[in-house]
């Protein structure tokens, strides 16, 4: 595999980690994660392009914009539950999409925002695919470590308690909407972080990066990998990006494969690849 594909997998996995804090741990299905991914990519991309900021400043901006946009969107969404919540995340994503679509002088509209540089740092030229791959890999591991700390912290327990039994969590003394909002903000920060890495990888912020299809893709990938575990979104990203980058060259109807994989997951392996693997593992151990 080319470096660029693996780099893209790691970036998508960071995006998935953020979603899974909502989906897997808190039980909130957000269909609007691209809002934070795209907003961060546009803002940091703009600053990279016209103001020549450094890589780490850009990533910091991405985290900030991701968290802030998630705070606004999340504040509106956590007031509602169930289907209304999902529809709100979706509708607000559409709103952001059309702002990006219309505001051509800044975002480039349908053409995207091209010409985003990868600034050198400490004499390392990140325009080299290998150098950028190493940087993204390191940042991915850092993100994974941070997310692991979060899900093993009291916050991780509280979010899971909310997923398991919202009424009881409230009765115990937890301000449930506030905790949902916190999960949103953290998820948004991860999305924004991934968005900036994505913009620098391709040198462009395509309009799709803020679109609902992109939001759907990360939900897809996370469910296929397994939303019940920390590593599910990573496995899901490997499957999703690998299929889209390699099979799509051979066969234009590749999303059909994805559809089949999704149906299999929903029907037989609600815990995704992670659960399928652990079942096969147990089965083979019993057989031997």
């Amino acid at each position: 595999m080319r470096h660029a594909i693996v780099t893209e997998i790691w970036i998508f996995a960071i995006f998935g980690l953020g979603l899974n804090l909502l989906l897997g741990y808190t039980g909130l299905l957000s269909f609007g994660q691209a809002t934070f991914f795209g907003s961060a990519a546009y803002v940091a991309g703009y600053l990279l392009k016209y103001y020549g900021i450094g890589i780490f400043t850009a990533l910091g901006v991405g985290i900030g914009v991701g968290a802030l946009s998630a705070l606004v969107v999340g504040y509106l969404c956590v007031q509602r539950a169930g289907l209304y919540f999902i529809m709100l995340t979706f509708a607000l994503n559409q709103l952001f999409y059309f702002i990006a679509y219309q505001w051509t002088s800044v975002t480039g509209g349908e053409d995207g925002m091209p010409g985003i540089p990868r600034p050198a740092l400490l004499g390392i030229d990140f325009r080299q695919p290998l150098a950028y791959y190493v940087l993204v890999s390191a940042l991915f591991l850092l993100s994974l470590w941070a997310m692991q700390r979060i899900v093993e912290s009291p916050l991780g327990k509280i979010l899971q308690a909310i997923r398991e039994n919202e009424v009881r969590a409230e009765a115990l003394g937890y301000n449930v909407p506030r905790f949902k909002l916190l999960a949103f903000v953290i998820g948004g920060a991860f999305s924004g972080f991934a968005g900036v890495l994505y913009a620098m990888l391709f040198g462009i912020v395509p309009l799709e990066a803020i679109g609902v299809v992109f939001s759907g893709n990360v939900v897809f990938a996370t469910l296929i990998g397994g939303s019940g575990s920390l590593y599910g979104p990573i496995i899901g990203s490997v499957v999703f990006i690998w299929l889209s980058e390699s099979v799509s060259v051979l066969w234009a109807r590749w999303p059909l494969l994805l559809g089949v994989a999704f149906v299999i997951v929903v029907l037989f392996f609600r815990g995704g690849v992670v659960e399928a693997w652990s079942r096969i593992w147990r089965f083979s151990k019993r057989a031997s």
């Binding site: 991780g156 327990k157 398991e164 009881r168 937890y174």
Partner: peptide, 30 residues
């Protein structure tokens, strides 16, 4: 109760809710 939690985790979240300090909420191990 919280069905997918262990018994200890069930009472742990209850005890934590009313503990005086939530320092390390995001990063300390339970």
């Amino acid at each position: 109760v919280f069905p997918a939690f262990t018994l200890l985790d069930n009472v742990w979240v209850a005890a934590f809710a009313c503990s005086r300090s939530w320092r390390g909420l995001l990063w300390r191990r339970t």
